[in-house]
Design a protein around this nucleic acid. Structure first.
Lengths: 147, 147
DNA sequence: CGACCATTGAAAACGATTTTCATTTTCAAT
DNA sequence: ATTGAAAATGAAAATCGTTTTCAATGGTCG
């Protein structure tokens, strides 16, 4: 990792090491706040902006991607070999990944059709997960509404 | 429209009328700021929050949807009979729509597989449009980099 | 008319993101 | 080892889009 960054003109520091490690171990779909908390447990002197900058750096070197689900917080998603879509529960904010192999084929063709140079595909399904779907039914039931 | 809103418990006002009209005429993919400017040309006394609230209202009654492309501004997209995806140029912010008929079939199945109650599907391709793609090539060319 | 409640506009609050700045640290070349 | 340039850090402040507050206004319905 140290060498990988060096070739791109970045330096390694203890803070960076910690943040990178925390991200890749605990990583998927963390927000800055979440990773900040995680990192703070290991070193309570690390600043928020350092975590933020390093998350951005991880994106810049292509190891993560920002995910924007419309709830006001940016999450950071590891870039893996397997592209995937997200099922996002707008109620409990749960995030479930799903395979998009078939979809990317279609999207690649769309890109070609528009002479568009794609950087990333985003495929999301927003709605209610099984659990929240059940709960919401209850809430809709007049008997359950708090008064 | 007046009646449609009334059935949902909302009132019609001159401001609302103007904002709705502006949105549906000039509507697609506007941000609050853009619609605010547009509306201000017609009535410079309308407040920003009124525009914002009415865009939210249009969403609430199901006539529009928020679109979040990760550049920090929420755009509002008319809900039409034809679902569509977005090609988003991260350089010039241009937005091109494309047909997603084939994709929605796949996503509906994914939802079923996860007992997920989908509210909306988001299909986006981020990258560079044909024009920006060409320009970026020039920038990458050392001859063109400003010094 | 009169009561009620949604709506409005201005301003303030909010909250996540991003920048600033002084200081410290890394790293490559001595 | 030493050093100098460039990068990184932490705290605080700035930014900026979004959202709320509040007093005043205005639409709807009995």
């Amino acid at each position: 990792m140290r060498e990988f960054l060096k070739t791109k003109g970045f330096k390694m520091t203890p803070q960076r090491e910690l943040i990178f490690r925390a991200f890749f171990e605990h990583g998927d779909h963390v927000s800055v706040d979440e990773l900040y908390d995680k990192v703070r447990e290991l070193d309570h002197t690390i600043g928020y902006s350092t975590v933020w900058r390093n998350l951005k750096l991880i994106c810049k070197v292509g190891l993560a991607e920002e995910v924007n689900l419309g709830d006001g917080v940016t999450r950071y998603d590891r870039v893996t070999q397997v592209p995937h879509g997200h099922l996002f529960c707008t109620n409990c904010k749960k995030l479930i990944e799903f395979n998009v192999d078939q979809v990317v084929g279609l999207l690649a063709q769309v890109s070609r059709d528009h002479a568009f140079a794609p950087d990333s595909f985003k495929v999301e399904i927003h709605g209610l997960c099984a659990e929240c779907s059940a709960k919401t039914e209850q809430i809709k039931n007049p008997e359950q509404v708090k008064s």
